[in-house]
């Protein structure tokens, strides 16, 4: 298992490197990379500044050297400065990171507590009304555009009914888990979570059905083990493996979803920052955001691999 984890660790590092290579390649693919930082005839770029930029980007050196030096900068935490406000990119990202992580975690928790129990219910009561409701819930969740769901929830629960706020994430003065704070989370995290809950539901349901149909459950039944014990002790534990393995893939979905949802709800996080950066042509911010998300994704993937190997002793790599 140790060998497997070491291999996965290096695969993760390779993935992050590949992400930097893709971003770097793209930035050099569009003709003059200087234009990414300063549009021709743009405001306030003096010849001296242009010269400084050229030196910073090391355009006189060969491409591979440019990439390696840039990578060294990144490893030292030097992501450059934002173009508009001329702040350190790392500081801007650090300021916004908390909001995004909070939203993603809230959505993930919500998706799990909606998806997994509904999936079990759906499998145990297969063919009943509950099963149809659960599957309908999943099918709708997978088909709704996240950003539109967010807008519709704003329309219904904020504009029409005036039940829940949106637009910021509260004053941050009150206690973290207080209603005053949490009510800002309800709409955005539900909008992100529905699609993820749908995936959890379908996976849990099919895994549960498979386990309930297996020989060892039949044996337990024939020995006279009660229904509840079978469901929770025999079936549930085994049925948890597929949902767990997709958790990392789900993280990608949550990140994508939260980028869009942050725009809809004016949530002060990384996703909104990235979209703003696209509109402002702020390349350094976008680079850093992409690399940050890629690293998070690789990290979560690695954790999942570890958990996977721990939970299912049958798996030997």
């Amino acid at each position: 298992m140790r060998k497997f984890l070491i291999r996965r660790f290096f695969a993760g590092i390779l993935s992050i490197l590949a992400a930097t290579a893709i971003v770097f390649g793209l930035s050099r693919a569009a003709g003059d990379p200087l234009l990414l930082y300063a549009k021709p005839g743009g405001y306030g770029v003096t010849p001296e500044q242009e010269q400084a930029l050229k030196e910073k980007l090391r355009l006189d050196k060969p491409l591979i050297v440019q990439y390696l030096l840039w990578l060294t900068d990144l490893l030292q935490g030097d992501f450059g400065k934002t173009l508009l406000a001329e702040q350190e990119v790392t500081k801007v990202i650090g300021d916004k990171m908390g909001a995004t992580v909070q939203l993603a975690v809230a959505s993930w928790v919500l998706a799990t507590i909606m998806g997994v129990p509904l999936g079990i219910l759906s499998a145990v009561l297969r063919g009943s009304v509950w099963d149809y409701l659960g599957r309908g819930f999943a099918l709708i969740g997978q088909s709704l555009p996240t950003f539109w769901l967010g807008l519709m929830m704003i329309l219904l629960f904020n504009t029409r009914l005036d039940w829940l706020p949106f637009g910021t994430r509260g004053s941050g003065e009150s206690f973290f888990l207080s209603w005053d704070n949490l009510r800002y989370f309800i709409l955005p995290s539900f909008a992100v979570a529905w699609g993820a809950a749908a995936v959890y539901l379908r996976l849990t349901r099919s895994a549960m059905l498979e386990v309930l149909d297996s020989e060892f459950v039949k044996l337990a039944r024939s020995k006279g083990v009660g229904g509840t014990t079978i469901i929770w002790k025999h079936a549930f534990r085994n049925a948890l493996i597929p949902p767990l393995t997709v958790s990392s893939l789900m993280m990608a979905g949550l990140i994508t979803g939260s980028v869009v949802i942050e725009v809809v709800f004016s949530w002060p996080g990384l996703g909104r920052l990235a979209v703003q950066a696209v509109q402002d042509n702020d390349f350094p911010i976008l680079t850093a955001t992409v690399l940050f998300f890629a690293s998070v994704f690789v990290f979560v993937n690695f954790i999942t691999d570890v958990l996977y190997a721990l939970i299912d002793p049958r798996i030997r790599y």
Binding site: G12, A18, I22, V23, L26, V278, V290, A294, V298
Partner: peptide
């Protein structure tokens, strides 16, 4: 492992 939406934005 690459976040597609963000890469598309780049």
């Amino acid at each position: 492992a690459v976040p597609f939406l963000l890469l598309a934005m780049v």
